[in-house]
């Protein structure tokens, strides 16, 4: 490692730690979000330095891009009248609780001791790791030919450890079900998008969809794959939602739900079919593996993208189009609360 690389890595590492600390301790929530976006960018650079371009792609798209938009949207909702009142009430409660916190000192000390014990244990484990263990890398290399793809990461994710990816997809689906169970989409009083945003969304959405297709395809032999492609698709959805588009009555019902479960369904179906032919669950015959992986990934990409966009919507979509209101100049704006709670 050259001196330059060492300097780059040191600077990267220290700024990451500093950013993480600042983002956690910042009293201003907006500043914390911006620091978190910057943290995502530097984290992606760190993954690149750690030779993990696949993870860097996921971090770049989800950590720096989508999560930033999601947090900003959540903050705006907190800033609405209902939200700020709730925060104020919380602050009142917190004010009266400062006396209680003094009594919690023994508890805090116990917590610190336990945390230090966990930290010491982790340090011990890392220090006692045997050096130069080959890991499973060799095994993956040896069996790469029968996996159907030439990118070892995709081989592990979609073939050798298919269970993990299947369960990850299910977690994403369960998250959305959790959000939907909290209630309907809040009706937002959106302003007209304006020419710049309309043009941007018309230019960027096709590009995002094309790039998603590219990453899905390239994942078979280079860094890329379903999650990265899905998050780009999700970003396209988020951009459309921000520009004021809402799923229409026809789309918000059955078609939306089918596309949400498509990824998990295709994965399970592909796993089950070969049980009938006397193989294990998720064990693909080598001659079909490449095609099967591409099909599963295509279904997963669609589901991931639509799930992420649906998460951004923040509730079960209703079967109606929003009504745009042109910016009103004469009427007082405060007459209409921006974010109304659902009934």
């Amino acid at each position: 490692m050259t001196l330059l690389q060492l300097m780059f890595d040191t600077l990267l590492g220290f700024s990451l730690l500093w950013l993480a600390w600042q983002a956690l301790t910042s009293p201003d929530l907006f500043r914390a979000i911006v620091l978190f976006i910057a943290f995502g960018l530097l984290m992606a650079l760190t993954w690149i330095r750690l030779d993990a371009p696949d993870v860097a792609m996921a971090e770049a798209s989800i950590g720096a891009g989508l999560t930033g938009a999601l947090l900003l949207s959540a903050l705006a909702r907190l800033g609405s009248k209902n939200g700020s009142r709730a925060i104020l009430e919380k602050k009142h409660q917190a004010g009266s609780m400062t006396e209680n916190t003094k009594n919690q000192l023994p508890f805090r000390l116990l917590l610190m001791v336990l945390l230090l014990a966990v930290a010491a244990g982790l340090v011990y484990v890392v220090l006692t790791l045997p050096e130069n263990i080959p890991g499973l890398g060799i095994l993956v290399e040896e069996n790469l030919e029968s996996s159907g793809v030439s990118n070892p990461v995709t081989a592990v994710l979609l073939n050798y450890r298919g269970y993990d990816t299947l369960l990850e997809l299910s977690v994403l689906l369960l998250t959305l079900l959790g959000v939907w169970s909290l209630g309907d989409m809040t009706k937002q009083h959106e302003s007209f998008p304006g020419p710049v945003l309309s043009t941007l969304s018309r230019l960027l959405v096709p590009l995002l969809i094309m790039a998603a297709g590219y990453l899905l395809w390239v994942g078979a032999h280079a860094p890329g794959g379903a999650f990265q492609a899905g998050s780009l698709l999700g970003a396209a959805g988020v951009l459309l939602l921000l520009a004021g588009w809402r799923p229409g009555t026809r789309l918000a019902g059955l078609p939306l739900r089918i596309s949400l479960v498509l990824g998990v369904a295709a994965f399970v179906a592909a796993g089950m079919v070969f049980i009938l032919l006397g193989r294990q669950f998720l064990e693909y015959p080598p001659s079909f593996a490449g095609v099967l992986i591409l099909l599963i990934e295509a279904a997963a990409t669609l589901s991931i993208g639509i799930t992420l966009a649906a998460l951004f919507l923040g509730g079960r979509p209703k079967f109606s189009q929003p009504k745009f209101s042109r910016p009103k100049l004469n009427q007082p704006k405060s007459s209409q609360p921006k974010f109304r709670r659902h009934k």
């Binding site: 891009g65 900003l72 705006a76 998008p193 780009l232 951009l239």
Partner: peptide, 13 residues
């Protein structure tokens, strides 16, 4: 590609 998404969320929300 994704740099614009957070900015749009900021402006719109």
């Amino acid at each position: 590609l994704l740099a614009a998404v957070a900015a749009v969320a900021f402006i719109r929300r």
